[in-house]
């Protein structure tokens, strides 16, 4: 199901995120891979699940294989694809392949640089940038490839893109967001935001683009994680107040505390967005609790 249907009827769209395994999926039909285990925690709490594409440039099972697996089990995947590892031929072919394998939603990103990952000596491709990729995905849906050749059958998917409200200068990020809208982006997910002012300054300008935006939140698990993100994770800043609050909770209570803090933040800002994208970094089991704190009614279960 395309998320478009949900946005169009005014649903507050809830998504979360899982990462494919470092390894293959065994042939044993009873084996449940970790990303599927995580998805099970999300069943009934979210409308859709992002599946990351070699996130942070760490080599893993492909996002398409994991997306197809989740789809087969009744979940709604948002297939992520980045420009880092594929040239324009591979990117277009992957989009056609994804549609052909039943994928309805995709999120098109630049991708973290190879230098951040576990294969630092790899050749970073970046043949296209994310704006160009969005345009090309939109053109494929119109029935032609980027060289202008007609397609025998065209894909039909819901095209998502990413924007970072933390970026300074914000105007430069908004110029790019504008380009993504013009190129054919149908919805947006934001990078992780923690700061109220960042949310407000961003949404005041971004809502003019008239595309549904999901507020992105990353669950803060510990004060160490906050400090680590401030030091090492590009484009994200965690305010000191967040770090102190999670740090004040005993270690055994941190899942509960993290759910409360994340839920409170979402509750405060949910009316400004058309949905939320919760990145739990493995703590998928607290997503129902986060939504309860955010006072968001969960959608009906989709998978068994």
């Amino acid at each position: 199901m395309k998320l478009k249907e949900l946005f169009d009827r005014g649903e507050f769209v809830i998504s979360s995120e899982v990462g494919p395994v470092k390894g293959a999926i065994p042939r044993d039909p009873d084996f449940v891979p970790p990303c599927q285990q995580e998805a099970q925690h999300l069943n009934g709490s979210v409308h859709a699940i992002n599946v990351t594409d070699n996130q942070s440039a760490v080599m893993k099972l492909g996002s398409l294989a994991a997306s197809v697996r989740l789809k087969a089990k009744g979940y709604e995947p948002i297939y992520q694809i980045t420009c880092r590892d594929r040239n324009r031929i591979a990117l277009q072919s992957e989009i056609l392949t994804a549609y052909s394998l039943g994928i309805d939603n995709m999120l098109l990103l630049t991708g973290d640089h190879t230098n951040l990952g576990d294969h630092k000596e790899a050749k970073p491709v970046f043949d296209l940038d994310s704006v160009q990729l969005v345009r090309i995905a939109a053109e494929l849906q119109e029935g032609r490839d980027m060289a202008g050749n007609p397609l025998m059958f065209q894909p039909d998917m819901f095209i998502g893109a990413v924007v970072n409200p933390n970026f300074q200068p914000l105007d430069l990020q908004l110029i790019k967001m504008h380009k993504k809208v013009d190129a054919g982006a149908q919805f947006f997910q934001t990078q992780a935001v923690y700061d109220d002012r960042v949310v407000d300054e961003f949404i005041a300008k971004a809502e003019a683009f008239g595309r549904p935006i999901q507020l992105g939140v990353v669950v803060l698990k510990s004060p160490q994680m906050g400090a680590y993100m401030n030091r090492n994770v590009s484009g994200i800043s965690v305010p000191q107040a967040w770090i102190e609050e999670i740090g004040a909770a005993a270690k055994g209570d941190r899942k509960k505390k993290a759910a409360e803090m994340t839920g409170r933040f979402i509750k405060k800002h949910k009316s400004k967005f058309q949905g939320v994208h919760i990145m739990p970094l493995g703590w998928t089991d607290i997503v129902p609790d986060i939504l309860a704190h955010a006072e968001i009614a969960p959608p009906r279960p989709s998978a068994g």
Partner: peptide
């Protein structure tokens, strides 16, 4: 730009520096 992007920066810059190297300026900024 470390990624040779043509339509503007990725989201990775922090304090004006590139995600690849905190000593290096973001080309798009």
């Amino acid at each position: 730009c470390a990624k040779s992007l043509l339509n503007g920066p990725c989201g990775g810059a922090e304090n004006g520096k590139c995600e690849v190297d905190s000593e290096r300026d973001c080309g798009w900024i």
